[in-house]
């Protein structure tokens, strides 16, 4: 563990908590893409199956459970509890165009052709594009509540911090994972436009 990865995990946890609070407090999921949230739940489910097979640390196991619970909790809030506030009309990104290529790519490019490893690779590829429906929805509605933009800023920062973690691990532990690094860079680049808007003029209330 290093400070970049710890800050990244905290930023990730913060993003998920901000989202849950936003939906719970405002009792509305307006402006939030349910499709992205479904993709995140798929990402964590596919990636954290190793919860039952390999124990890394208490921190690792607890955080995996928190991310899984939070992502399914968000889906429950969006599609069941506050279903009426879900904005179907603006959440239209075709997620099958994201899932299928990631499935194919994970079968073609992976570290090992084993079920758990293919699922891990699929989750890495899918996570890199999982935010697209949300960014698409924000661009379509032309604005985002301030709380939603803070959520996106924290979520985008988490993988940017992970890039610093990978640089650190390369030099300090000569450990690197090309698949995670390339996907992480793609994921962070997708936020660049949003980061620019968030930092220059706070995209909410436009």
């Amino acid at each position: 563990m290093n400070v970049f990865r710890l800050l990244g995990d905290i930023s990730h946890l913060l993003a998920i908590i901000i989202l849950l609070l936003k939906i719970w407090k405002t009792r509305s999921c307006a402006g939030i893409s349910g499709r992205s949230q479904v993709l995140f739940a798929v990402v964590y489910t596919a990636r954290y199956l190793d919860l039952f097979t390999s124990y890394i640390s208490a921190y690792n196991s607890i955080m995996k459970l928190v991310f899984l619970a939070a992502s399914y909790g968000t889906i429950y809030l969006m599609f069941i509890k506050f279903k009426a506030s879900y904005d179907h009309n603006h959440d239209t990104f075709r997620i099958e165009f994201l899932i299928l290529p990631c499935v194919l790519l994970s079968l073609l490019i992976n570290h090992e052709f084993s079920p758990l490893e293919i699922l891990w690779t699929f989750s890495i590829y899918l996570e890199s594009v999982a935010i697209l429906p949300q960014l698409f929805m924000v661009s379509k509605t032309g604005e985002a509540e301030s709380i939603t933009s803070h959520y996106l800023f924290a979520l985008g920062s988490y993988r940017a911090l992970y890039i610093l973690n990978w640089i650190y691990r390369y030099y300090a532990e000569s450990h690197y994972d090309v698949i995670a690094i390339v996907a992480g860079i793609v994921q962070t680049v997708l936020y660049c436009d949003f980061f620019y808007l968030y930092i220059t003029k706070g995209i909410y209330g436009q």
Partner: peptide, 10 residues
Amino acid sequence: KSTPSSHDEL
């Protein structure tokens, strides 16, 4: 090089 068992990141 990361191997299946060594995915120690979230």
